[in-house]
Write a protein that binds this DNA or RNA. Sequence first.
DNA 1: GATGAATGAGCATTCATTCAT
DNA 2: GATGAATGAATGCTCATTCAT
Lengths: 195, 195, 195, 195
Amino acid sequence: MTATPARRRELLDTAAEVFAAQGYNATTVRRIADEAGMLAGSLYYHFDSKESMVDEILSTFLTELWAGYDAVLEAGLGPRETIEALVTESFREIDRHRAAVAIYQKESKQLAALPRFHYLTDSQTKFEKAWLGTLERGVADGVFRTDLDIRLTYRFVRDTVWVAASWYRPGGQHSPEEIARQYLSMVLDGISVVT
Amino acid sequence: MTATPARRRELLDTAAEVFAAQGYNATTVRRIADEAGMLAGSLYYHFDSKESMVDEILSTFLTELWAGYDAVLEAGLGPRETIEALVTESFREIDRHRAAVAIYQKESKQLAALPRFHYLTDSQTKFEKAWLGTLERGVADGVFRTDLDIRLTYRFVRDTVWVAASWYRPGGQHSPEEIARQYLSMVLDGISVVT
Amino acid sequence: MTATPARRRELLDTAAEVFAAQGYNATTVRRIADEAGMLAGSLYYHFDSKESMVDEILSTFLTELWAGYDAVLEAGLGPRETIEALVTESFREIDRHRAAVAIYQKESKQLAALPRFHYLTDSQTKFEKAWLGTLERGVADGVFRTDLDIRLTYRFVRDTVWVAASWYRPGGQHSPEEIARQYLSMVLDGISVVT
Amino acid sequence: MTATPARRRELLDTAAEVFAAQGYNATTVRRIADEAGMLAGSLYYHFDSKESMVDEILSTFLTELWAGYDAVLEAGLGPRETIEALVTESFREIDRHRAAVAIYQKESKQLAALPRFHYLTDSQTKFEKAWLGTLERGVADGVFRTDLDIRLTYRFVRDTVWVAASWYRPGGQHSPEEIARQYLSMVLDGISVVT
DNA sequence: GATGAATGAGCATTCATTCAT
DNA sequence: GATGAATGAATGCTCATTCAT
């Protein structure tokens, strides 16, 4: 007999997969239940609502993400190394929580409108502070170019990394670290040959 | 008095705005009608269905996009100049069809499953051929780096450009051309200072 | 330019045809308008409502039917000859008003519930009185069998005649009079060979 | 506690009653639900659609009808006895499935246009073959009159029997067998006194 | 822990009807 | 006489959720 928290995880993983594939709104509770081999009503023994399922999926993911990010940010690295570490950590999270990341990308804007999901906005703010701050520090330190709009750069780097969740498939050709390495190489040095 | 095609356009613009903001599924026909100052049923005088609205929004956009892309591709430019022209053209399209682009980004995967939207898949294929081909040509010509996974590079450049639709607001600080210039600068030369 | 009453007739004939083919409820005003080469709204210049169209179709038919029936009933014929004349007259009406008869058969029960269509019920009553009365007279006179339930006989004869509207096509192989002759022959003498 | 198939039957019986009384199109799903003491949406737990309800009603009826008919047709009876048995069987079916028969009479033409109801057309064809064949055999054998249009006779007998569903009420004065006996007597020997 | 059956609110869509032009 | 555009009520259907068993 599976212990309750394990069963919960299992169900949430199933739900996350379906949410990621079909979108939160387009996913019916019945579909999740089907995938989990039970009837729709039975899910309500485990969860209060469909909303609380995404909630748990996203908050679990964000908790882990911030554990990793905070560790990086508190490590006292230089701006370039911080960026490198954040990107690498991000791809690791994508690897571990692909579905959750995809949901986050697609649905967080909608969900953030609901009070219970305000933490998404908070996270967004913290996120921006971390990345933008690091980039600014890098510009000040002379490691990043000064001729670029810093907010544009921020969006560029941020999106560049996270959209990867839309095509990334765990167990593919490249490890998350390898993908991070190539992405960083492109972001930092560009794709053109230096002449 | 508004001519019929003008009214259609007006309504589609309204619909596109709402679809982009709330997502296709989460958007009710009633909401669109509200926004257009009419009753839900009245929309059906102009359109067959909610589906045919997105259809017209997306196909109009893609038609225009490909007009621009085809012009670039047939201009006989070198790989670097082609990439530059495609990126610039893309940002111009984002400027002109922000809502449509956002819808395309968020919903095309779902919609492409329906027969009537197979042209989305076709477009996707043509798109990949155009960009990937140009990148490969660039690598062969020695203008793009050879040490990068070419498909990774493709996704990097592609996503980098189109996600911009999620935050871009027409009439903002930068013109589409200026944004294109800075994006290109980052993509081609990187964000780090060459030492 | 067509005079108004002629145009009305034309439109009603069109409507009757569609009502008969698709059923009253299933027929949309738009469909009738299409068939008449105009827009749905334009019909309302000629008629108050869809209901008033069937109303006019049915009442016109019933007026003519009763003109014929009354002539027969007042002719002072014997029971057998009366039945023969009524059946013949009925097939002539089916020939002239096929669509109206078909509508009457299919929809009168529903429509009779509405106050404006109470004349359908009245007609039904008169109808029963005429047929049932004649049959009873025939039984009393010894021209019709006495061993049959008279109401059953009435229904038998009535249905037998009118259902023909569901398959009858004007201009077919047999004239209405010929069909009447054969029907009467079956009803009166049976289909089996007398041994 | 009602078992599932029993509940289904119950609901279908309710639906059939309403369909027969108001017509398929004019019957709203809400009305059926009202009659069944539940909400409209609840019906969809048991059935896919309004269409699938008529489908099940009609196909169940036809299955039973053909069981009876086939038994008769395979019994090797003479033409007259076959007609007698078919008519009797028909009235028994009307007795058992009055609502279904009424629906079949009124709606099958419309419904047969839909692919899922093609079996209605098939049944119609088989039906015609059975009756017409028997009549032809009877004419050849000299038990039925030769001076009648055989197709007219077929329609006469067919309609004569089935329209009865429009007025028949189970539990009435006459048993189905008695009605069949009188109908057969009229059809075979006529209503007039042989002089 | 799970099922079966039902709720109730909401949704896309249809359609008879209206009316200014 | 007819059109184009809109109304508003109703319809079939979906779906998250509840709850007795």
